[in-house]
Design a protein around this nucleic acid. Structure first.
Lengths: 230, 230
DNA sequence: ACCTGAACACCGTTCAAGT
DNA sequence: ACCTGAACACCGTTCAAGT
């Protein structure tokens, strides 16, 4: 399904000398990841899309994993964080949404230890979040704890997202689930069963927003605020 | 490095007829996962450990992924949830800790869509959590939202854990990070830089516990409690 | 019914060329 | 310096045997 026309014309035996460089490889890799996901990203597939032989890639990257790392770095570098908001709480909300979107749009990031370990001091998300928390007058120890909590929630929501994406799109999903839960034996699952009497439905986005607001409430409380925002 | 003695004695050409069944295969797979992780779990490795040829495994499982699914189901079935606690808030704490431990001890679970999608009505963790929330008098809609938030936080903390495990064990990690952060340009990273003046250190467990308490505070507030527990 | 050997279509990567 | 063919040591899996 490779749509790149690079290798279509005239079946040339050898690609000209300038065709490859780290940048085009990273971009081709990002295209594959966006359209077909991580399991489709193969040295062969990448080479095909670039109209080149498999081995040529190794002139520019020592190994496949190095390409993945470069993709991760590029995605982080491209990330644009919101810089204006109604308040610091609102800014935290917008930053967290951007973080969530980034991870949902590019699930590879969740597979890169280098990203998850986040040892990189060059971390714009962390900087922006610490900015909010410090301006809110929250002490350092609490600020680090709250930032870590927020990040873990966002990462968890994004981790869960792909597996549950179908729920949002299948209109019958919830009624089927409702029926299955209702069929549970009330003796062993009394509470889950009780839930079906009045059954709340959340999309993945709504579940994320609910959790985000819960955490923002906690942060506002830690800052001694009475929740002044929309 | 296969330590199983099953294929050591007498170099028998063919394994006797009773050697294999789904159960021993799942157990051998769990042993590999525990000691060497997911990337070590190979049909070859599994067969070697069981003293059997690679292809014999296909008599009992249609494909490798089916083995992984069975491992996930078995791990969930084995999970023992705490059933006594000081209060419902404390029970929520203990359940979440058990959930976190499960995912940290068995990171495979984070790779199984069937687990993350959690469509299975046979979900003891969900049942226990909804029990607490309902006894706390929290309405259904809020209860589902809070349970989802708690689960996302736990999953995020577990996702992040392996990449950061080394931090807890390397005594020099924090001083190195501290120096690197301090070396950041204060113009572009003022807040991260400021953080280094008084630099809070969290182990991964401490970060998890901090976030858990933050969420439990939110739940207690939703229940109209004044936080009555230890 | 259960275990297996040969073979297939893939992986990523090494290494010695080619230009 | 950059592109490549052949070859290697792996994957998971199919299929036709063997017992």
């Amino acid at each position: 399904v490779s749509s790149s026309g690079a290798n279509r014309e005239g079946r040339r035996r050898r690609a000209p000398r300038g065709t490859l460089n780290p940048d085009v490889i990273v971009k081709a890799a990002m295209a594959v990841l966006d359209t077909d996901g991580l399991e489709a990203l193969t040295m062969q597939r990448l080479a095909d899309d670039l109209g080149v032989q498999r081995m040529s890639l190794y002139t520019h990257f020592r190994e496949k994993d190095a390409i993945l790392q470069a993709v991760g770095a590029e995605l982080l570098a491209r990330l644009e964080l919101p810089d204006t908001a109604d308040s610091d709480i609102d800014l935290l909300r917008q930053i967290s949404r951007a973080h969530f979107r980034l991870l949902v749009d590019h699930p590879v990031l969740l597979q890169l230890d280098s990203i998850l370990s986040n040892t990189s001091p060059n971390d714009p998300i962390g900087e922006a979040i610490f900015g909010c928390l410090q301006r809110l007058g929250i002490d350092h120890r609490r600020a680090v704890g709250l930032a870590a909590t927020l990040a873990r929630f966002v990462i968890g929501a994004a981790t869960v997202y792909p597996a549950r994406r179908a729920w949002d799109e299948d209109p019958d999903y919830w009624s089927r689930l409702h029926r299955r839960l209702a069929a549970l034996p009330p003796e062993t699952y009394p509470y889950t069963h009780e839930l079906t009497r009045e059954f709340p439905v959340y999309t993945q986005i709504e579940a994320f927003e609910f959790g985000l607001e819960t955490l923002l409430d906690g942060i506002a409380a830690a800052a001694g605020l009475t929740r002044e925002d929309s």
